[in-house]
């Protein structure tokens, strides 16, 4: 059904992987991986039709425009870009979305969120990084807070999270902190990934999958 694309043509896409293999590595079914390929094709062909998602195409898909710079979307893109080539291939795309699947282990979600906030990849979430992210969010939402208020929020956050008070949050401290503040992990789960073929039928419609 829909627009047919042969398996041979699909294999020409860089990073294309066998859906059965990808489904065996992830919480997605084979038909869901096939549907995700249709989505991937649409996003990866939106600016340059090279079968890879670059940062501009990622932003375009998220925000429907390419001019909206967003620190956090950039950070998510960087973590999706496992091979650090500045682009996301299909295998990376499916495995990265899998992290946000409701069935993905919480321990690994915590790990991903730690890397997300450890922007300088030092193995610690440092106060200067948290301040930078806080200021970015305030700017994004056009909220104004005095510098004194920002420092007070940082003081409170680090007095709660930085148990050994060395000025930075390590992996164990982060796990401890999110276990006491489970709402912080909400962004790491997208409930609709459990049922993408019915929640987002628009891209599935064009899939050649029969078993949905």
């Amino acid at each position: 059904m829909g627009c047919f694309q042969s398996t041979a043509k699909r294999r020409q896409h860089p990073g294309y992987e066998d859906p059965v293999h990808l489904a065996s590595q992830t919480a997605f079914s084979v038909s869901e991986v096939e549907a995700l390929f249709e989505l991937f094709k649409s996003i990866s062909g939106s600016v340059i039709d090279d079968g890879l998602i670059n940062k501009e195409e990622f932003q375009l898909a998220l925000f429907k425009n390419t001019r909206k710079e967003n620190l956090f979307a950039n950070r998510i893109f960087d973590l999706f870009d496992v091979k650090k080539r500045g682009v996301i291939d299909f295998g990376d795309f499916v495995r990265a979305l899998n992290v946000f699947h409701p069935n993905f282990p919480m321990e690994e979600k915590i790990d991903f969120s730690f890397k997300l906030y450890d922007m300088d990849n030092t193995g610690f979430i440092e106060r200067k990084e948290v301040k930078q992210m806080l200021i970015a969010l305030l700017s994004e939402s056009e909220m104004r807070l005095s510098d004194e208020t920002i420092e007070t929020i940082l003081d409170k956050t680090f007095s709660d999270a930085d148990v050994n008070q060395d000025g930075k949050i390590d992996r164990a401290e982060w796990e401890n902190f999110v276990s006491r503040n489970p709402s912080l992990m909400k962004i790491m789960t997208l409930p609709y990934l459990k049922d993408i073929t019915t929640t987002f039928p628009s891209f599935v419609f064009h899939s050649e999958v029969d078993d949905i």
Binding site: L39, L71, A73, T157, N181, K186, I187, Y192
Partner: peptide, 24 residues
Amino acid sequence: TNFNAFDIISLSSGFDLSGLFEDN
């Protein structure tokens, strides 16, 4: 304030990936 910084940061639209699944 009762907020911690991560509560505030997690409000960013950059974390909302639902746009990926909507029509491009």
